Amino acid sequence: MTPFPFSAIVGQDEMKTAMILTAIDPRIGGVLVFGDRGTGKSTAVRALAALLPPIDMVAGCPCNSATLADCPDWAGISQAEIVTRPTPVVDMPLGVSEDRVTGALDIERALTRGEKAFQAGLLARANRGYLYIDEVNLLEDHIVDLLLDVAQSGENVVEREGLSIRHPARFVLVGSGNPEEGELRPQLLDRFGLSVEVCSPRDIDTRVEVMRRRDAYENDHAAFMAHWQEQDAGLRAQILAARAALGGVQVSNVALHDCASVCLALGSDGLRGELTLLAAARAIAAFAGAGAVTRDHIRATAPMALRHRLRRDPLDEAGTGARVARQLSEVLP
């Protein structure tokens, strides 16, 4: 069945905005979605796959390379037939083996032909797309270490059984989870550009609308999709326009000062917070059709870019989102 339309998701505006921003500028660094079960986290990720513009790639390339020069030698592709494919969205299941993630020796070819050949893993399939991890806080530590290395370098390196294999692995990491089931390692938490918190709707009308749309999706599928695909197409066009305009969005010294002031007031470690906040503010400005980043754009993206970067304060009972909002009102009145 066709994925649930992105535009038809009820509420969860911050989560949808964060995913749109990473579609506009993948360098923002991915999205972490924490919240209750059954709040549309995985639905939104799968809906995003259908929403995103397709990519041009070399036919048969296991890394979704745009040109033959980018396709690794071990793929054995000699002719560059360019085809259009949907933006890849790859699921990483819990309990996945290291070989499945990074790739491994093709045992069948080794036994039948005596050849050493590489079988690409999930990281290759996710190149130029999205890597989705449900229950990311339950991911095994050695897999987390692998992701950290690849996220840092943008390249997957496998050295095993006499093979030394490299291929590009640049993807947007999307993780979801329930905070009650365990915390995320700080090293991986910092790799997510944006973080959002979702919760169950608290009003009757919203819950009824969720049921109405889901029921129509399952029982009157064709009519439901026809209605919402037009809105998805409009959103896709907005994303493409924002991508084209992104490089022309101006950032003044005042905007740079505002980003640094907010991060300093919040005590966020390192400079990744400022850089991510600036990238997110520029992306939302491009999406809005603005020619320059303003304080409104910084205010709109600061909670997403910074809430997961704050140090814990045992004396402050307010959540991290509330702390960001409080500092924004003081630093950027």
Rank of each mutant, 00 (worst) to 15 (best):
D56Q: 15
D269M: 08
A288D: 13
F34S: 07
C63H: 03
L278E: 04
G29I: 03
A233W: 02
L68I: 11
V172R: 02
A242W: 05
I107M: 15
L328E: 00
A280K: 09
A69S: 14
E181I: 05
F118H: 07
L264P: 00
L275V: 10
A322E: 11
R212S: 06
E135S: 11
V158A: 02
A47K: 03
A126N: 03
G35I: 12
A66S: 15
P72F: 08
V251K: 09
D269N: 14
G319P: 07
L139E: 00
L139P: 01
E161S: 13
M304I: 03
M225K: 05
V254Y: 13
R311E: 12
T301C: 12
Q79C: 02
V174S: 00
C199E: 13
G30T: 03
V96N: 05
I28P: 00
L105W: 11
A66W: 01
A151S: 13
M304F: 04
W228I: 12
L52N: 01
A223V: 14
W74D: 02
T206W: 02
V210Y: 00
E181K: 09
V172C: 11
S153M: 08
I9T: 11
P201K: 10
S78G: 09
L332N: 11
I204Q: 13
M304Y: 10
R323V: 04
R307C: 13
E197T: 15
V210Q: 01
P86E: 06
T301V: 13
S252Y: 10
P186R: 12
V136N: 00
N64R: 07
L111I: 15
D73Q: 12
P54G: 06
P179M: 06
K41I: 05
Q327I: 04
A242F: 10
I82N: 03
T67G: 07
V101R: 02
C61V: 11
S200F: 12
F34E: 14
R326E: 13
P333L: 06
F6D: 01
R85N: 05
V10L: 08
V157P: 01
W74Y: 14
D141M: 09
D220A: 15
A283H: 06
P314E: 05
R323D: 08
T43W: 03
E230H: 14
R125F: 07
V90Y: 13
P62K: 05
G270R: 12
V172E: 03
T206G: 00
C263S: 11
V90D: 04
A18C: 06
L173H: 04
L122W: 09
V293H: 11
D215M: 12
M211P: 00
L277E: 11
D220S: 14
V331N: 02
A285G: 14
R37L: 10
H142P: 02
R323M: 06
R236T: 04
V150K: 00
N127K: 07
S195Q: 11
A285I: 13
T67F: 06
A233R: 15
D70M: 09
R170S: 08
A280E: 05
L48V: 01
A124P: 01
D313Q: 10
G175Q: 01
D141F: 09
A69F: 08
K16E: 00
L173P: 07
T276V: 15
A244L: 12
I20S: 01
D313H: 06
R236C: 04
E274C: 15
T39W: 05
